[in-house]
Design a binder for these strands. Structure first.
Lengths: 203, 203
DNA sequence: AGAGCCATGTAAGAGGTTACATGATTAG
DNA sequence: CTAATCATGTAACCTCTTACATGGCTCT
C-alpha cells in the first residue's frame, strides 16, 4: 500500500482522495479520535458532508486503513474479546499537518471544485473556520490565472488559421467558459462569510 | 467511468466509452474497415481527434477487442505466417446501427460535454455531417431542461430555510452555473452550421 | 424469538493506467 | 549494425462499486 504509482517520478506525494480528508477532518473535529461507525453517520442524508460526497461502509473502512498505512491516523482495537469490536481512530501529528496542508492547497482543476473544493470548505468550516476566506481567495486567484492563460492560448490559436481545423479552439472555449463560471461561483461564495444567515441568493 | 457497474440489472445496454465510438467512427469513415495501427495514427498530436481524446496503443487494442466482443466489428488476421501480422477490423451492420444511435443520443451530463459530446461531434463531421445541426440542437434542448429543473430545485430549496445549513444550495448553484455556461457554449456552436461546406478550413 | 441496528469488514468484479514484450521491416 | 518505426498485445497494479458475511446487542 506504499503507493508508489511508479508513474510520476514518485517524488510527488500524491494526495489521497477527498473522502480520506473528509474522514481526517471528522476525526479532528471529534477531538482527535473517533471510530468507524460514528464517522459513517456523518455521511447519511441530512448531514452536511452527505450533500457533497457519499461514502459507503466498505469504502469508509478501506479509506481508514489507507490513512493508517500513511500513519495519518492510528487504529486501536478497544475491546479485546469480540471478533468485531469497536475500533478507535486517533489522528497523528503527521495527519494533522497533512490535513491542514491539504485544506490550504487550492484544487488544481475546475472539475475538482464540485467535490474536492467543497469538501475542503466543509472541513475548514468544521475545524478552522477562520481559514475559509483565505481558502476561497486563493482558489479564486488560481481560477483567474487559469482563465487568463486560456484567454492567451485562445488568442494564439486565433492567430494561426490552420488551428481552426482542429478541435482545440472548441475544447479551449468550453474550458474557458467553465472556468469563468467557476470564478463567478467562487466570488459569490465570498459575501457569505459576512452574512451569518437569512440571506439566500438563488443563482 | 460514469458506467453503472455491471451488477445493476444488466438489462441496460450500457454505452461503451467515447473512445470505442471514436474507433467505430474511424473504421466507418475508412470505408468500413481498417486496422489497429492506422487507427492509432488518428490519435497522434495534430489529428483532429487527438485534440479531444487520447488513446494509447494498449487501450486502443483493448477497445477493439471489446468492440469485437459486442459484434460491432469483426477482426480478421490478414497475413498467416507472422506471429503479429496486420489485423483487419471490419464494421458490422450492428456496429453501424449502434454508431448512428450513439451519435444521435445527447450526452446525459454536463461533464460529458468535454469528452463524449465532442467525440460525437467529431465523428458526425466525419461520417454524417448533415446530422451536426440536429445533434447540437438536441443537446441544447436537453441542457436547457437540466437548467430549468435546477432552477426549480434551487427555488424549492430557498423556500425551506433549514436547507441553507447544508451544502445542497452550493452544489446546485455550481452545477447550474456550469450548465448555463454549457448552454451558451453549445449555442455558439450553432452558427457554424451555416458555413456548411466546411471543407475549406483544411487549408 | 425475530427485527433491526451496531460495527467491521471480505469477495468479486469492472475498468483504467503504465510498463514492458515481441518480432518484422526499413533507414542511416 | 543500430535505430526507428510498424504492429500488437500481456502483465501488474490501482481504484471504485456492490453484494454479502459476521456477530453482538436491544427492543418488542
Amino acid at each position: 500500500m506504499s503507493r508508489p504509482p511508479a508513474t510520476k517520478a514518485s517524488s510527488e506525494p500524491v494526495d489521497e482522495q477527498p473522502g480520506s480528508y473528509a474522514l481526517l477532518g471528522l476525526i479532528e473535529q471529534a477531538g482527535g479520535s473517533s471510530h468507524g461507525y460514528s464517522l459513517l453517520q456523518e455521511f447519511v442524508p441530512g448531514k452536511p458532508l452527505a450533500d457533497i460526497i457519499q461514502l459507503n461502509p466498505s469504502m469508509l473502512y478501506h479509506l481508514l486503513k489507507r490513512l493508517a498505512a500513511r500513519e495519518w491516523i492510528v487504529i486501536e482495537q478497544t475491546a479485546g474479546g469480540a471478533p468485531r469490536s469497536r475500533q478507535r481512530c486517533r489522528i497523528t501529528p503527521a495527519g494533522r499537518d497533512e490535513l491542514t496542508r491539504w485544506i490550504r492547497t487550492p484544487v488544481a482543476h475546475t472539475r475538482e471544485l464540485r467535490l474536492e473544493f467543497l469538501v475542503k470548505l466543509a472541513v475548514a468550516r468544521m475545524i478552522c473556520p477562520d481559514l475559509e476566506p483565505d481558502l476561497v481567495d486563493e482558489q479564486i486567484t488560481l481560477c483567474h490565472s487559469w482563465r487568463d492563460s486560456m484567454v492567451v492560448e485562445l488568442e494564439q490559436l486565433g492567430e494561426k488559421p490552420e488551428s481552426s481545423a482542429g478541435f482545440k479552439p472548441l475544447v479551449l472555449s468550453l474550458r474557458l467558459n467553465q472556468t469563468e463560471s467557476a470564478c463567478r461561483w467562487l466570488e459569490d461564495l465570498l459575501p457569505q462569510r459576512t452574512l451569518s444567515r437569512g440571506r439566500e441568493r438563488a443563482g
